[in-house]
Design a protein around this nucleic acid. Structure first.
Lengths: 197, 197
DNA sequence: GTCTATATAATGATAGAC
DNA sequence: GTCTATCATTATATAGAC
Protein backbone atom coordinates (compact mmCIF):
# COMPACT_ATOMS: atom_id res chain seq x y z
CA UNK A 1 0.00 0.00 0.00
CA UNK A 2 3.05 2.24 0.35
CA UNK A 3 3.23 5.65 1.92
CA UNK A 4 -0.27 6.87 1.09
CA UNK A 5 -3.17 5.60 3.13
CA UNK A 6 -4.45 3.35 0.38
CA UNK A 7 -6.45 6.17 -1.17
CA UNK A 8 -4.61 6.39 -4.46
CA UNK A 9 -5.13 3.45 -6.77
CA UNK A 10 -2.06 1.57 -7.73
CA UNK A 11 -1.43 1.29 -11.43
CA UNK A 12 -2.00 -2.40 -11.06
CA UNK A 13 -5.48 -1.78 -9.67
CA UNK A 14 -6.20 0.67 -12.47
CA UNK A 15 -5.28 -1.99 -15.00
CA UNK A 16 -7.50 -4.60 -13.40
CA UNK A 17 -10.44 -2.25 -13.27
CA UNK A 18 -9.98 -1.28 -16.90
CA UNK A 19 -9.80 -4.92 -17.90
CA UNK A 20 -12.94 -5.66 -15.92
CA UNK A 21 -14.88 -2.94 -17.75
CA UNK A 22 -13.63 -4.00 -21.15
CA UNK A 23 -14.28 -7.68 -20.51
CA UNK A 24 -17.87 -6.79 -19.74
CA UNK A 25 -18.34 -4.38 -22.64
CA UNK A 26 -16.70 -6.37 -25.43
CA UNK A 27 -15.97 -9.79 -23.98
CA UNK A 28 -12.63 -11.27 -22.98
CA UNK A 29 -11.52 -12.43 -26.41
CA UNK A 30 -12.52 -9.21 -28.15
CA UNK A 31 -10.53 -7.16 -25.64
CA UNK A 32 -6.90 -6.65 -26.62
CA UNK A 33 -3.99 -5.80 -24.39
CA UNK A 34 -3.72 -2.60 -26.41
CA UNK A 35 -7.33 -1.75 -25.47
CA UNK A 36 -6.49 -2.17 -21.81
CA UNK A 37 -3.34 -0.09 -22.18
CA UNK A 38 -5.29 2.71 -23.86
CA UNK A 39 -7.85 2.78 -21.04
CA UNK A 40 -5.06 3.27 -18.53
CA UNK A 41 -3.29 5.85 -20.69
CA UNK A 42 -0.32 3.70 -21.40
CA UNK A 43 0.98 4.02 -24.93
CA UNK A 44 1.66 0.49 -26.04
CA UNK A 45 0.54 -2.89 -24.85
CA UNK A 46 4.08 -3.53 -23.71
CA UNK A 47 4.03 -1.42 -20.56
CA UNK A 48 1.32 -3.55 -19.03
CA UNK A 49 3.70 -6.42 -18.52
CA UNK A 50 5.60 -4.52 -15.85
CA UNK A 51 2.50 -4.92 -13.66
CA UNK A 52 0.83 -8.16 -14.64
CA UNK A 53 1.95 -11.49 -15.97
CA UNK A 54 -0.47 -11.76 -18.88
CA UNK A 55 -4.02 -11.45 -20.11
CA UNK A 56 -5.37 -14.60 -18.54
CA UNK A 57 -4.00 -13.58 -15.16
CA UNK A 58 -6.28 -10.57 -15.30
CA UNK A 59 -9.25 -12.82 -15.98
CA UNK A 60 -8.31 -15.13 -13.13
CA UNK A 61 -7.82 -12.37 -10.63
CA UNK A 62 -11.15 -10.75 -11.48
CA UNK A 63 -13.00 -14.06 -11.37
CA UNK A 64 -11.65 -15.21 -8.01
CA UNK A 65 -12.13 -11.83 -6.44
CA UNK A 66 -15.73 -11.85 -7.63
CA UNK A 67 -16.39 -15.19 -5.96
CA UNK A 68 -14.94 -13.87 -2.73
CA UNK A 69 -17.34 -10.93 -2.93
CA UNK A 70 -20.38 -13.16 -3.24
CA UNK A 71 -19.28 -15.41 -0.38
CA UNK A 72 -18.54 -12.44 1.87
CA UNK A 73 -21.99 -10.99 1.27
CA UNK A 74 -24.08 -14.16 1.51
CA UNK A 75 -22.35 -16.69 3.73
CA UNK A 76 -22.89 -14.77 7.01
CA UNK A 77 -26.61 -14.66 6.28
CA UNK A 78 -26.83 -18.42 5.97
CA UNK A 79 -25.45 -18.93 9.48
CA UNK A 80 -27.97 -16.68 11.21
CA UNK A 81 -30.63 -18.12 13.45
CA UNK A 82 -33.67 -17.39 11.31
CA UNK A 83 -36.31 -19.42 9.45
CA UNK A 84 -35.19 -20.49 5.97
CA UNK A 85 -37.55 -18.23 4.07
CA UNK A 86 -36.24 -15.16 5.86
CA UNK A 87 -32.66 -16.23 5.31
CA UNK A 88 -33.35 -16.87 1.64
CA UNK A 89 -34.93 -13.45 1.25
CA UNK A 90 -31.89 -11.77 2.75
CA UNK A 91 -29.52 -13.92 0.72
CA UNK A 92 -31.30 -13.06 -2.53
CA UNK A 93 -31.14 -9.37 -1.76
CA UNK A 94 -27.46 -9.53 -0.82
CA UNK A 95 -26.60 -11.51 -3.94
CA UNK A 96 -28.39 -9.11 -6.27
CA UNK A 97 -26.80 -6.14 -4.56
CA UNK A 98 -23.36 -7.57 -5.23
CA UNK A 99 -24.26 -7.98 -8.90
CA UNK A 100 -25.63 -4.49 -9.25
CA UNK A 101 -22.73 -2.79 -7.51
CA UNK A 102 -20.09 -4.90 -9.25
CA UNK A 103 -21.53 -5.30 -12.75
CA UNK A 104 -18.21 -5.75 -14.51
CA UNK A 105 -16.90 -8.33 -12.10
CA UNK A 106 -20.26 -10.07 -12.37
CA UNK A 107 -19.89 -10.32 -16.14
CA UNK A 108 -16.60 -12.13 -15.68
CA UNK A 109 -18.03 -14.31 -12.93
CA UNK A 110 -21.02 -15.38 -15.01
CA UNK A 111 -19.88 -15.29 -18.61
CA UNK A 112 -16.20 -14.78 -19.26
CA UNK A 113 -14.81 -17.42 -16.88
CA UNK A 114 -15.12 -19.95 -19.67
CA UNK A 115 -12.03 -18.54 -21.31
CA UNK A 116 -9.92 -19.64 -18.37
CA UNK A 117 -7.68 -22.54 -19.32
CA UNK A 118 -7.29 -25.63 -17.19
CA UNK A 119 -6.79 -26.22 -14.34
CA UNK A 120 -8.10 -22.81 -13.36
CA UNK A 121 -11.36 -23.33 -15.16
CA UNK A 122 -12.26 -26.35 -13.05
CA UNK A 123 -11.03 -24.65 -9.90
CA UNK A 124 -13.33 -21.76 -10.61
CA UNK A 125 -16.34 -23.97 -11.29
CA UNK A 126 -15.77 -25.99 -8.13
CA UNK A 127 -15.78 -22.87 -6.02
CA UNK A 128 -18.83 -21.46 -7.79
CA UNK A 129 -20.67 -24.73 -7.14
CA UNK A 130 -19.76 -24.42 -3.49
CA UNK A 131 -21.29 -20.97 -3.41
CA UNK A 132 -24.46 -22.05 -5.14
CA UNK A 133 -24.84 -24.79 -2.55
CA UNK A 134 -25.58 -22.08 -0.02
CA UNK A 135 -28.80 -21.35 -1.88
CA UNK A 136 -29.64 -24.97 -2.46
CA UNK A 137 -29.36 -25.74 1.26
CA UNK A 138 -31.68 -22.88 2.17
CA UNK A 139 -34.24 -24.00 -0.38
CA UNK A 140 -34.10 -27.66 0.68
CA UNK A 141 -34.44 -26.68 4.34
CA UNK A 142 -37.46 -24.52 3.60
CA UNK A 143 -39.02 -27.21 1.49
CA UNK A 144 -38.52 -29.89 4.13
CA UNK A 145 -40.01 -27.65 6.80
CA UNK A 146 -43.03 -27.01 4.59
CA UNK A 147 -42.28 -23.29 4.31
CA UNK A 148 -41.78 -23.75 0.57
CA UNK A 149 -43.94 -25.82 -1.74
CA UNK A 150 -41.98 -26.39 -4.92
CA UNK A 151 -42.35 -28.70 -7.90
CA UNK A 152 -38.75 -29.91 -7.44
CA UNK A 153 -36.05 -28.75 -5.04
CA UNK A 154 -33.21 -28.82 -7.50
CA UNK A 155 -35.31 -27.07 -10.13
CA UNK A 156 -36.28 -24.42 -7.60
CA UNK A 157 -32.61 -23.80 -6.83
CA UNK A 158 -31.70 -23.39 -10.48
CA UNK A 159 -34.71 -21.14 -10.92
CA UNK A 160 -33.75 -18.85 -8.05
CA UNK A 161 -30.11 -18.67 -9.16
CA UNK A 162 -31.09 -18.05 -12.76
CA UNK A 163 -33.58 -15.32 -11.94
CA UNK A 164 -31.14 -13.50 -9.65
CA UNK A 165 -28.24 -13.73 -12.03
CA UNK A 166 -30.23 -12.46 -14.99
CA UNK A 167 -30.13 -9.04 -13.39
CA UNK A 168 -26.65 -8.57 -14.82
CA UNK A 169 -28.08 -8.42 -18.33
CA UNK A 170 -30.33 -5.43 -17.89
CA UNK A 171 -29.55 -3.54 -14.69
CA UNK A 172 -28.43 0.04 -15.24
CA UNK A 173 -27.09 2.00 -12.26
CA UNK A 174 -28.93 5.14 -13.32
CA UNK A 175 -32.24 3.40 -13.94
CA UNK A 176 -35.68 4.07 -12.49
CA UNK A 177 -35.26 1.63 -9.60
CA UNK A 178 -32.23 1.61 -7.37
CA UNK A 179 -30.35 -1.57 -6.54
CA UNK A 180 -32.18 -2.24 -3.31
CA UNK A 181 -35.69 -1.67 -4.67
CA UNK A 182 -34.97 -4.00 -7.50
CA UNK A 183 -33.41 -6.67 -5.30
CA UNK A 184 -36.36 -6.44 -2.94
CA UNK A 185 -38.89 -6.73 -5.75
CA UNK A 186 -37.24 -9.78 -7.21
CA UNK A 187 -36.90 -11.37 -3.77
CA UNK A 188 -40.63 -10.88 -3.24
CA UNK A 189 -41.55 -12.44 -6.57
CA UNK A 190 -39.17 -15.35 -6.04
CA UNK A 191 -40.35 -16.13 -2.52
CA UNK A 192 -43.99 -15.93 -3.54
CA UNK A 193 -43.09 -18.32 -6.31
CA UNK A 194 -41.64 -20.82 -3.86
CA UNK A 195 -44.51 -20.66 -1.44
CA UNK A 196 -47.17 -22.04 -3.77
CA UNK A 197 -50.81 -21.51 -2.92
CA UNK B 1 -34.31 -28.69 -52.17
CA UNK B 2 -33.32 -30.60 -55.31
CA UNK B 3 -34.32 -34.09 -56.29
CA UNK B 4 -34.49 -35.60 -52.82
CA UNK B 5 -37.51 -34.91 -50.67
CA UNK B 6 -35.64 -32.63 -48.35
CA UNK B 7 -34.46 -35.50 -46.21
CA UNK B 8 -30.74 -35.17 -46.88
CA UNK B 9 -29.13 -32.11 -45.40
CA UNK B 10 -27.47 -29.76 -47.81
CA UNK B 11 -23.83 -29.08 -47.13
CA UNK B 12 -24.83 -25.54 -46.37
CA UNK B 13 -27.19 -26.71 -43.64
CA UNK B 14 -24.50 -28.96 -42.24
CA UNK B 15 -22.16 -26.00 -42.01
CA UNK B 16 -24.70 -23.84 -40.23
CA UNK B 17 -25.48 -26.54 -37.73
CA UNK B 18 -21.81 -27.13 -37.03
CA UNK B 19 -21.27 -23.42 -36.54
CA UNK B 20 -24.23 -23.27 -34.18
CA UNK B 21 -22.82 -26.04 -32.01
CA UNK B 22 -19.35 -24.53 -31.93
CA UNK B 23 -20.61 -21.03 -31.21
CA UNK B 24 -22.39 -22.43 -28.17
CA UNK B 25 -19.52 -24.62 -26.98
CA UNK B 26 -16.63 -22.22 -27.42
CA UNK B 27 -18.15 -18.86 -28.26
CA UNK B 28 -18.20 -17.07 -31.61
CA UNK B 29 -14.76 -15.49 -31.40
CA UNK B 30 -13.06 -18.64 -30.17
CA UNK B 31 -14.53 -20.64 -33.04
CA UNK B 32 -12.38 -20.60 -36.17
CA UNK B 33 -13.42 -21.29 -39.73
CA UNK B 34 -11.05 -24.23 -39.57
CA UNK B 35 -13.00 -25.60 -36.58
CA UNK B 36 -16.19 -25.40 -38.58
CA UNK B 37 -14.55 -27.01 -41.59
CA UNK B 38 -13.24 -29.86 -39.46
CA UNK B 39 -16.70 -30.50 -38.00
CA UNK B 40 -18.11 -30.85 -41.51
CA UNK B 41 -15.19 -33.01 -42.67
CA UNK B 42 -13.82 -30.44 -45.03
CA UNK B 43 -10.04 -30.32 -45.11
CA UNK B 44 -9.25 -26.63 -45.08
CA UNK B 45 -11.19 -23.53 -44.10
CA UNK B 46 -11.16 -22.55 -47.76
CA UNK B 47 -13.86 -24.91 -48.94
CA UNK B 48 -16.46 -23.28 -46.71
CA UNK B 49 -16.51 -20.19 -48.85
CA UNK B 50 -18.13 -22.07 -51.72
CA UNK B 51 -21.25 -22.25 -49.49
CA UNK B 52 -21.27 -19.18 -47.31
CA UNK B 53 -20.07 -15.61 -47.61
CA UNK B 54 -18.17 -15.41 -44.34
CA UNK B 55 -18.12 -16.08 -40.63
CA UNK B 56 -20.42 -13.25 -39.61
CA UNK B 57 -23.03 -14.38 -42.11
CA UNK B 58 -23.27 -17.62 -40.19
CA UNK B 59 -23.87 -15.71 -36.97
CA UNK B 60 -26.52 -13.55 -38.61
CA UNK B 61 -28.36 -16.46 -40.15
CA UNK B 62 -28.44 -18.39 -36.88
CA UNK B 63 -29.55 -15.35 -34.89
CA UNK B 64 -32.42 -14.33 -37.17
CA UNK B 65 -33.63 -17.88 -37.56
CA UNK B 66 -33.67 -18.20 -33.79
CA UNK B 67 -35.86 -15.13 -33.42
CA UNK B 68 -38.27 -16.53 -35.97
CA UNK B 69 -38.48 -19.72 -33.92
CA UNK B 70 -39.46 -17.86 -30.76
CA UNK B 71 -42.07 -15.76 -32.56
CA UNK B 72 -43.57 -18.78 -34.26
CA UNK B 73 -43.96 -20.59 -30.95
CA UNK B 74 -45.24 -17.76 -28.79
CA UNK B 75 -47.08 -15.23 -30.94
CA UNK B 76 -50.08 -17.48 -31.70
CA UNK B 77 -50.59 -17.98 -27.97
CA UNK B 78 -50.83 -14.26 -27.32
CA UNK B 79 -53.74 -13.89 -29.76
CA UNK B 80 -55.89 -16.58 -28.18
CA UNK B 81 -59.04 -15.69 -26.30
CA UNK B 82 -57.94 -16.60 -22.79
CA UNK B 83 -57.26 -14.77 -19.52
CA UNK B 84 -53.78 -13.24 -19.31
CA UNK B 85 -52.48 -15.61 -16.66
CA UNK B 86 -53.37 -18.65 -18.76
CA UNK B 87 -51.82 -17.08 -21.84
CA UNK B 88 -48.67 -16.22 -19.90
CA UNK B 89 -48.40 -19.75 -18.59
CA UNK B 90 -48.62 -21.17 -22.09
CA UNK B 91 -46.21 -18.58 -23.45
CA UNK B 92 -43.64 -19.37 -20.76
CA UNK B 93 -43.86 -23.07 -21.49
CA UNK B 94 -43.58 -22.54 -25.25
CA UNK B 95 -40.60 -20.20 -24.84
CA UNK B 96 -38.71 -22.59 -22.60
CA UNK B 97 -39.43 -25.48 -24.92
CA UNK B 98 -37.87 -23.57 -27.79
CA UNK B 99 -34.77 -22.96 -25.69
CA UNK B 100 -34.44 -26.56 -24.59
CA UNK B 101 -34.95 -28.03 -28.04
CA UNK B 102 -32.70 -25.47 -29.76
CA UNK B 103 -29.95 -24.95 -27.20
CA UNK B 104 -27.27 -23.96 -29.69
CA UNK B 105 -29.44 -21.45 -31.50
CA UNK B 106 -30.48 -20.11 -28.10
CA UNK B 107 -26.85 -19.49 -27.16
CA UNK B 108 -26.45 -17.33 -30.24
CA UNK B 109 -29.76 -15.61 -29.63
CA UNK B 110 -28.91 -14.74 -26.04
CA UNK B 111 -25.15 -14.37 -25.92
CA UNK B 112 -23.29 -14.38 -29.20
CA UNK B 113 -25.39 -11.80 -31.07
CA UNK B 114 -23.18 -9.09 -29.61
CA UNK B 115 -20.48 -9.97 -32.08
CA UNK B 116 -22.67 -8.87 -34.95
CA UNK B 117 -21.42 -5.63 -36.46
CA UNK B 118 -23.67 -2.71 -37.27
CA UNK B 119 -26.25 -2.32 -38.64
CA UNK B 120 -27.17 -5.93 -38.04
CA UNK B 121 -26.61 -5.67 -34.34
CA UNK B 122 -29.25 -2.97 -33.93
CA UNK B 123 -31.60 -4.77 -36.29
CA UNK B 124 -31.33 -7.84 -34.15
CA UNK B 125 -31.94 -5.97 -30.91
CA UNK B 126 -34.98 -4.19 -32.33
CA UNK B 127 -36.57 -7.46 -33.29
CA UNK B 128 -35.73 -9.06 -29.97
CA UNK B 129 -37.33 -6.12 -28.17
CA UNK B 130 -40.42 -6.63 -30.27
CA UNK B 131 -40.57 -10.24 -29.19
CA UNK B 132 -40.09 -9.41 -25.52
CA UNK B 133 -42.98 -6.98 -25.78
CA UNK B 134 -45.28 -9.98 -26.17
CA UNK B 135 -44.47 -10.93 -22.60
CA UNK B 136 -44.64 -7.40 -21.30
CA UNK B 137 -48.14 -6.93 -22.74
CA UNK B 138 -49.40 -10.11 -21.12
CA UNK B 139 -47.97 -9.11 -17.76
CA UNK B 140 -49.37 -5.58 -17.92
CA UNK B 141 -52.78 -6.91 -18.91
CA UNK B 142 -52.79 -9.35 -16.03
CA UNK B 143 -51.65 -6.70 -13.62
CA UNK B 144 -54.30 -4.22 -14.73
CA UNK B 145 -57.01 -6.86 -14.43
CA UNK B 146 -55.83 -7.67 -10.92
CA UNK B 147 -54.86 -11.23 -11.84
CA UNK B 148 -51.26 -10.37 -11.02
CA UNK B 149 -50.05 -8.39 -8.04
CA UNK B 150 -46.50 -7.30 -8.77
CA UNK B 151 -44.10 -4.79 -7.22
CA UNK B 152 -43.52 -3.20 -10.63
CA UNK B 153 -44.76 -4.23 -14.08
CA UNK B 154 -41.54 -3.59 -15.92
CA UNK B 155 -39.54 -5.36 -13.23
CA UNK B 156 -41.89 -8.30 -13.40
CA UNK B 157 -41.35 -8.53 -17.16
CA UNK B 158 -37.59 -8.52 -16.83
CA UNK B 159 -37.86 -11.07 -14.05
CA UNK B 160 -39.97 -13.45 -16.13
CA UNK B 161 -37.73 -13.09 -19.17
CA UNK B 162 -34.58 -13.52 -17.11
CA UNK B 163 -35.83 -16.59 -15.28
CA UNK B 164 -36.97 -18.30 -18.50
CA UNK B 165 -33.82 -17.50 -20.40
CA UNK B 166 -31.53 -18.74 -17.65
CA UNK B 167 -32.57 -22.25 -18.59
CA UNK B 168 -30.05 -22.16 -21.42
CA UNK B 169 -27.20 -22.19 -18.92
CA UNK B 170 -27.97 -25.45 -17.21
CA UNK B 171 -30.48 -27.50 -19.18
CA UNK B 172 -29.17 -30.87 -20.34
CA UNK B 173 -31.28 -32.89 -22.79
CA UNK B 174 -30.52 -36.14 -20.98
CA UNK B 175 -31.23 -34.77 -17.53
CA UNK B 176 -33.59 -35.95 -14.83
CA UNK B 177 -36.48 -33.76 -15.96
CA UNK B 178 -37.59 -33.57 -19.56
CA UNK B 179 -38.16 -30.26 -21.31
CA UNK B 180 -41.86 -30.12 -20.62
CA UNK B 181 -41.66 -30.99 -16.92
CA UNK B 182 -39.05 -28.35 -16.44
CA UNK B 183 -40.94 -25.70 -18.40
CA UNK B 184 -44.07 -26.51 -16.46
CA UNK B 185 -42.30 -26.28 -13.11
CA UNK B 186 -40.78 -22.93 -13.90
CA UNK B 187 -44.08 -21.62 -15.24
CA UNK B 188 -45.71 -22.61 -11.96
CA UNK B 189 -43.09 -20.88 -9.83
CA UNK B 190 -43.16 -17.77 -12.00
CA UNK B 191 -46.95 -17.45 -12.00
CA UNK B 192 -47.16 -18.00 -8.26
CA UNK B 193 -44.56 -15.29 -7.95
CA UNK B 194 -46.68 -12.86 -9.93
CA UNK B 195 -49.87 -13.61 -8.06
CA UNK B 196 -48.70 -12.39 -4.69
CA UNK B 197 -50.60 -13.41 -1.62
C1' DG C 1 -16.87 -28.19 -54.86
C1' DT C 2 -12.72 -29.29 -52.72
C1' DC C 3 -8.07 -28.85 -52.15
C1' DT C 4 -3.39 -26.46 -51.00
C1' DA C 5 -1.02 -22.42 -50.60
C1' DT C 6 -0.92 -17.86 -49.33
C1' DA C 7 -2.07 -12.76 -48.78
C1' DT C 8 -3.11 -9.65 -45.16
C1' DA C 9 -4.05 -8.18 -40.66
C1' DA C 10 -4.17 -8.58 -35.87
C1' DT C 11 -2.87 -10.63 -31.51
C1' DG C 12 -0.14 -11.68 -26.92
C1' DA C 13 4.12 -11.19 -25.41
C1' DT C 14 9.19 -9.81 -25.35
C1' DA C 15 13.64 -7.00 -26.06
C1' DG C 16 16.19 -3.29 -25.10
C1' DA C 17 16.82 1.95 -24.94
C1' DC C 18 15.88 5.54 -21.76
C1' DG D 1 8.21 1.99 -15.34
C1' DT D 2 7.40 3.43 -19.86
C1' DC D 3 8.37 3.54 -24.45
C1' DT D 4 9.05 1.78 -29.44
C1' DA D 5 9.97 -1.86 -32.27
C1' DT D 6 9.38 -6.42 -33.23
C1' DC D 7 8.78 -11.56 -32.99
C1' DA D 8 5.92 -15.56 -33.41
C1' DT D 9 1.47 -17.06 -33.97
C1' DT D 10 -2.98 -17.21 -35.57
C1' DA D 11 -7.01 -15.52 -37.85
C1' DT D 12 -10.30 -14.57 -42.02
C1' DA D 13 -10.47 -14.76 -46.51
C1' DT D 14 -8.83 -15.42 -51.40
C1' DA D 15 -6.34 -17.59 -55.57
C1' DG D 16 -5.88 -21.00 -58.59
C1' DA D 17 -5.10 -26.08 -59.67
C1' DC D 18 -7.86 -30.08 -60.13
Amino acid sequence: MGINGGIVKSRRTEIIEAAERLFRDKGYLATTMRDIAAETKLQGGGSLYAHIKGKEDLLWEIATEAIDGFFAAVYPITTQDLPPDQKLREAIIAHIEVISTRLSAAAVYFDEWRHLTQPRRDQFLARRDEYEQLFELLIRAGSQQGVFVVPDERLATLHVLGAMNAVRHWYKPDGRLNAHQLADGIATMLLNGLQGR
